[in-house]
Structures are given as C-alpha cells and as structure tokens.
C-alpha cells in the first residue's frame, strides 16, 4: 500500500514535470493557429477556429524561406568543414605522436568552455577588413573554428576506445595513415560521427550572437537572427511570431524524434570522461 502510494506520487511528479516541459511548446503551436483577435481575447484558450494563415504570412512578410535556406547552407558548410578537420586532428591525437600532443588536446578542452562573446568584437573587425560582413561565409568561417574544440574532444575520446592493434596491424602492412583512417577507423565511427554532426548542427542552427552581429542584410540572415526581427516589427502580432518560432523549431523536433539517443549521448558528452 505504501509502495503503491509512493509510485503514484512519483508518477504525479513526473507528469507535472512533463507538463511544465511541454507547455511552452504547446503554447507555440496553439497560438500559431489563432488569429490575432482570438489571441487577444483569450490568450490561454484552445484555438476555436484554427487557421494556417500565420504560417503563410511568415513567408510573405519576411524572407523566411531564404533565412531557412541560409541556416541550412551555413550548417552544412561549417559542420562539414569542422568535422573533417577534427577527424584528422583527433586521429593524430589518438594514434600518433607529436610534440605538444597533450597540450593540443588540453587546449581544445579549455576552448570548449571559452565564452564566445570574447571573440565577437575582434572577429567582427577581421570580417570588416576582409569584406565578408553581411555575407554567409563570415559566419561559416567563424562557426567552423568554434566547432573544432568540442569535435576534437568528442572524437579523441571515441578513437581512444578503439583497439590500437587494429591500427598497428595495418601500419605493419604498410598502409598509409590516411588510408587507415578512411578504410578502418571511419567505418567503425559512423554512429559517433553522426552524433557529432547532430550536436554541431543544432549548435549552428541555434546560434544567435554571431549571426546577429555579422549578418545585417535582410536577405542574408539566419533563421534565429531573422526571428528576432519579428519582435521589433510585429510586436503586437503574437500568433505570427509563434508561427515563425514553430517553423524554426520544427526541423529540430523532427530530428529529435527520429534520433533521440544520438542527441542525448552527444549533448551530454562534456560531462564525465
């Protein structure tokens, strides 16, 4: 009896917690389906006459499609570049020997925790001088650099778990290290690389500070930087803003539902080992 009531209490706590976790998401969806009028009259109620007009309006009043495409392009280029660069570096750290090996790895760990805002002023001046301000390559370049420390850290930890005999045997057979990396190590690292790509993509998709500062032409914004524009221009149109917010979250939700365990493993990697 006591055990039963305890289990009920635990279930109640978790259900309450789930409601608190999910309510803001539900609020986004239900508000996006309302007209401004019905939101003002009843901000908390269900959408009585749901409308999809807000979703179309988002694309009409702002270049939201273009922003989405920009975010995708930036994510593909910066995550791709950072992943390739980090795979080679992590392979050298895990299986090679070079002067400063330990220091290089520790520097990466320290940089993982460095406040990004510390870099934004000097990098802005570099981008102005290079004529890249208001172009996507400015954020692509910066994101590539910023993603490397975590990527190296994450991959080194995984590579170190691989049996070193595999690499030694292949070296004796005369295979080059590029070949070993591509033919032996990478096929064993598909899930790990996928996890890394997901974590990095989310980071790039969600990043605001650099996107806000570097991209100030309307057509060149990323989704997140664009979303903040709604605040100023459509401050009294909550349903429109929530439609935009929903669209910005949608790709993440789909990805999360499809590959939840990769998310959890990748995003908690900074803790522990």
């Amino acid at each position: 009896m006591k055990a039963l009531s305890r289990a009920t209490g635990q279930q109640a706590l978790l259900i309450l917690l789930s409601l608190v976790s999910l309510y803001p998401l539900w609020f986004i969806v239900q508000t996006a389906l309302k007209t401004t009028q019905s939101y003002v009259t009843d901000p908390t109620g269900l959408p009585i006459a749901p409308t999809l007009a807000n979703f179309f309006d988002v694309f009409r009043v702002m270049p939201f499609g273009r922003w989405t495409l920009n975010s995708l392009l930036v994510a593909v280029v910066s995550v791709g570049a950072a992943t390739v660069i980090s795979i080679f570096a992590a392979y050298a750290v895990a299986f090679g020997r070079f002067v400063g090996q330990r220091a290089f790895f520790n520097v990466n760990i320290a940089l993982m925790a460095l406040p990004p805002v510390a870099l934004v002023v000097p990098l802005f001046t570099v981008m102005v001088q290079a004529g890249l301000i208001n172009t996507l390559p400015s954020v692509m370049l910066v994101y590539t650099g910023l993603l490397i420390p975590f990527s190296v850290f994450f991959l080194v930890n995984f590579f170190r778990e691989l049996p070193s005999e595999l690499i030694e045997a292949a070296t004796i057979d005369g295979a080059s290290h590029t070949r070993i990396l591509l033919r032996i190590v990478m096929p064993l690292s598909v899930a790990t690389t996928f996890t890394l790509v997901i974590v990095n993509t989310i980071w790039v998709w969600n990043e605001l500070l650099f996107a806000l500062v570097f991209l100030q032409n309307n057509d060149q914004r990323t989704v997140m930087a664009g979303l903040t524009l709604f605040q100023g221009r459509f401050a009294t149109n909550e349903p429109l803003m929530m439609a935009g917010a929903f669209l910005s979250i949608l790709p993440l939700l789909v990805l999360y539902l499809a590959s939840q365990r990769f998310f959890i493993r990748g995003m908690t990697a900074g803790i522990g080992k």
């Binding site: 570096a89 050298a92 570099v126 650099g145």
Partner: peptide, 25 residues
C-alpha cells in the same frame, strides 16, 4: 611527420578563431 600534417588544419583554424581574437581583445 604525418601527425603534424593531420593536426595542422585544426591548429590554423584554432589560431584564427580563438588565439588571434583573444590577443586582439
């Protein structure tokens, strides 16, 4: 020498994205 070749791109990227801005700031 191969490990140096493998880490070089990462070192260049880190120098540009972190070291140089930190000195400048």
């Amino acid at each position: 020498l191969w490990p140096y070749g493998f880490v070089l791109p990462a070192i260049v990227a880190l120098a540009a994205a972190f070291v140089y801005p930190l000195i400048e700031v």
